[in-house]
């Protein structure tokens, strides 16, 4: 199998300096871009498998780069953004970015997001209907959820919520994305529904320990852990 091609878009040379060796060691072929325009050109010419995109670029707004990319490409995009800029992250995710990593970040965290993004791409191409996340087993074909082989009874909405997260296991889903997928676009702003159902779901799943199945991304959304 060919090395996955990774396009890293960041205007800080210092970021490339430490990212490139590790990404190469991890088996990626790294393509560098320091501006939004260069990123768009390289995305077309090199056809990367994943794009890492810093939202603060000198020439273009990172969000515009996402919009431009999504015109013709479904390549997973992981955005780099400051921890305190939730609105920017949410906008980027709603515009089609697949995930985000807060700056400053550790390399392990970034690599986990990249793996999840790549896996999800392959999953769309047809993995089996049964997802395993640690002790949990989610059978999307038979609408069955089990923990350690024991069935867990969920309401329809609870199951929909879990299934939606499971289909994107490892990547974040914004509040808006979850709400419109399950309750419809007219409820896209009603985050209180989400909090109530996530709370119920965690209770039924017994997901209350330190290591969570459903991970809260504060101010942004939720992701299903793909550890395991």
């Amino acid at each position: 199998m060919n090395k996955p091609i990774l396009l890293v878009v960041d205007d800080e040379p210092a970021i490339h300096r430490f990212l490139t060796p590790v990404l190469e060691v991890e088996g990626y072929e790294v393509v560098r871009a320091e501006t939004g325009r260069a990123a768009l050109d390289l995305a077309q010419s090199r056809k990367p498998d994943v794009i890492i995109l810093d939202l603060g670029l000198p020439d273009l707004d990172g969000k515009d780069v996402i919009v431009a990319l999504r015109q013709w490409s479904a390549t997973p995009i992981v955005v780099l953004s400051a921890r305190d800029r939730e609105a920017e992250k949410i906008l980027a995710l709603d515009m089609g970015a697949n995930d985000f990593v807060n700056k400053p970040f550790s390399v392990g965290e970034l690599l986990a997001r990249l793996r999840a993004a790549l896996r999800q791409r392959r999953r769309i191409d047809g993995e089996g209907p049964v997802l395993r996340c640690g002790a949990y087993e989610i059978d999307l074909a038979r609408h069955r959820v089990a923990r350690d082989g024991e069935d867990i009874r969920l309401t329809k909405t609870e199951y929909e919520l879990l299934a939606q997260l499971a289909r994107h296991a490892g990547t974040v889903l914004t509040h808006r994305q979850l709400l419109s997928a399950i309750w419809g676009d007219e409820h896209a702003g009603d985050t209180q529904y989400l909090r109530v159902y996530v709370g119920q779901l965690r209770q039924k799943l017994g997901d209350t320990g330190d290591v969570r199945l459903i991970i809260t991304e504060p101010g942004v959304g939720y992701r299903l852990s793909d550890a395991g």
Partner: peptide, 23 residues
């Protein structure tokens, strides 16, 4: 501050997690 901190954190975590595999 975030950019140098990103570099430091990134380089340090690279060395910790992948140091043995780097030249």
């Amino acid at each position: 501050f975030r950019t140098p901190l990103s570099s430091i954190l990134g380089a340090a975590s690279s060395l910790i997690d992948y140091g043995e595999r780097l030249s």
